[in-house]
């Protein structure tokens, strides 16, 4: 595989992400039951099932087209907090990657960074608030640093996946300040954030599918 990323690589990433979401659906919902409203797994699975259908029915030709299709599908099918947030993530990612048929690892890292910026702009969460941002921020940083050092994409994605998993684990002791878990105050401490768990799956899927 060339180190440049094709639309088909991106599609493979999303297919793998969808598969992981389905496999972890109950786990994500159980995490959300503990500090939220027990719908995160169902929400993401409904969204990613629709994404798989959309990608199959109308395969995108460019990264921008893919980002728009995935983002709009998530916005239109998921609802709740994760719909607009993951939707925005992919809309911004697509916009950043543009119309080229292939993107470089640098461009991909910059795209993820743009996606993260979109999530922060929409959700106004800061690192430490116990949200998906806590997994996404270190993951983007890890990939940027790896590609900045000209490491192979596979290594960069592996590092990003590890950083996302560490970020996810780091949400456990945090006190939630954003999203539904914030209603629990001190009682949110000791639970892993469902959205951060989903982000870890997103990066694990990238490491698996695009390496």
């Amino acid at each position: 595989m060339s180190s440049d990323i094709t639309v088909s690589d991106l599609t493979g990433w999303l297919t793998e992400f969808g598969r992981l979401i389905k496999a972890h659906k109950e786990e994500l919902t159980a995490l959300d039951a503990a500090i939220g409203d027990a719908d995160h797994g169902t929400n993401m699975d409904r969204g990613m099932t629709a994404v798989a259908e959309a990608l199959a029915a109308d395969p995108p030709q460019t990264p921008a087209g893919l980002g728009k299709q995935v983002g709009m599908t998530l916005v239109s099918k998921v609802g709740g907090a994760s719909g607009p947030l993951f939707g925005t993530f992919f809309l911004r990612l697509g916009a950043a990657l543009g119309e080229a048929t292939e993107v470089t690892p640098d461009q991909f890292a910059a795209g993820l960074s743009a996606g993260l910026a979109g999530v922060v702009a929409r959700g106004k969460a800061e690192p430490g608030d116990k949200t998906m941002v806590d997994a996404l921020t270190p993951a983007v940083a890890a990939l940027e640093s790896a590609v900045g050092q000209d490491q192979p994409l596979a290594d960069g994605l592996a590092a990003a996946a590890q950083a996302a998993a560490d970020g996810r684990d780091a949400t456990v002791p945090m006190l939630a300040r954003k999203g539904r878990a914030s209603y629990l105050g001190e009682r949110s401490i000791g639970h892993q954030d469902p959205g951060a768990t989903t982000v870890a799956l997103l990066l694990a899927a990238a490491a698996t599918a695009m390496s």
Binding site: D37, D39, T42, N43, V78, G79, G80, G83, P84
Partner: peptide, 11 residues
């Protein structure tokens, strides 16, 4: 009407 306990979508 959103899904159970899930806000509706913009559409």
């Amino acid at each position: 009407a959103g899904e159970i306990f899930t806000s509706p979508v913009p559409d």
